[in-house]
């Protein structure tokens, strides 16, 4: 059985595609690929392919943050991406992915939301980060988060004329304060792997996703998988995630 074979390899510090345990697949980042969106990026980690589109809309601020713009993140596990994805509203995995990517952006204060306020308590810019999975071969959170930050970096705010959005006149860049990088570390038996493929994810016992700032502070974490992990495991996984985040940061 293939998954038993993959498990055996990992237990011997080997991977089915020949990578090292902490090695990323070939990563490709392409920004500005969706012209109708105010910002966009397509990121590939090996065969995993994710597009993030950024749309800017006008809306009302949250009542408890009346002078700040609004961030909304969504994800769709479109059926084209995998035989396991079904049509319909987002399931728990898509919702979780969107919320985890959102946390990385929100808690890091990546976007300077105060600068997106147009009229306090009434009108602000809303930033919609929409994640579209094109092909699922594992590490969806990692690819989505990298695509999101890459897209945000190239996003431009459309011109506003008498309350109407003129989308073909893009003016200033979206003001960003920080650039969070999200890394997921997988645990298989007592080994840790980076950038798992879909097949590897089927043998993963647990994973820990960590969103990391430029100064190595952590702004979001999410444990996944059905197995238990020890305090020592957590320590090792956090350290590995921080180390690998530096590689991904170079791609921004």
């Amino acid at each position: 059985m293939r998954s038993e074979y993959i498990l055996k390899l990992i237990e011997n510090d080997e991977r089915i595609d020949g990578r090292k345990m902490d090695e990323f697949r070939k990563i490709n980042v392409e920004t500005g690929c969706i012209k109708r969106a105010e910002g966009s990026a397509r990121v590939k980690f090996g065969k995993t392919d994710v597009i993030v589109g950024i749309k800017m809309e006008i809306g009302e601020p949250f009542s408890d943050m009346p002078n700040m713009g609004v961030l909304k993140t969504g994800a769709e596990f479109t059926p084209i991406a995998s035989p396991d994805f079904e049509s319909g509203p987002p399931g728990e995995d898509a919702i979780e992915l969107a919320r985890v990517v959102d946390r990385g952006i929100r808690e890091s204060e990546c976007i300077d939301l105060e600068k997106l306020c147009l009229k306090e308590e009434e009108k602000v810019w809303e930033v919609y980060v929409d994640i579209h999975i094109i092909n699922h071969d594992g590490n969806l959170i990692g690819a989505s988060a990298l695509a999101a930050i890459s897209a945000l970096k190239t996003t431009k705010i459309p011109k506003l004329e008498d309350d109407k959005i003129i989308r073909d006149k893009l003016e200033k860049k979206l003001p960003l304060l920080h650039e969070p990088i999200t890394v997921t570390v997988g645990k298989v038996s007592d080994k840790f792997i980076i950038d798992s493929t879909k097949e590897e994810e089927e043998v993963l016992n647990s994973k820990l996703t960590v969103a990391i700032m430029e100064d190595e502070k952590i702004c979001a974490m999410q444990k996944g998988g059905t197995d238990r992990i020890s305090f020592d495991d957590i320590e090792k996984m956090i350290n590995l995630a921080i180390k690998k985040s530096k590689e991904l940061r170079k791609l921004l």
Binding site: E216, A220, S230
Partner: peptide, 14 residues
């Protein structure tokens, strides 16, 4: 002491 849920949002050093 095996951990089965771990989430975090905010800003903390490791």
């Amino acid at each position: 002491k095996e951990i089965t849920l771990l989430q975090m949002d905010g800003m903390l050093t490791s």
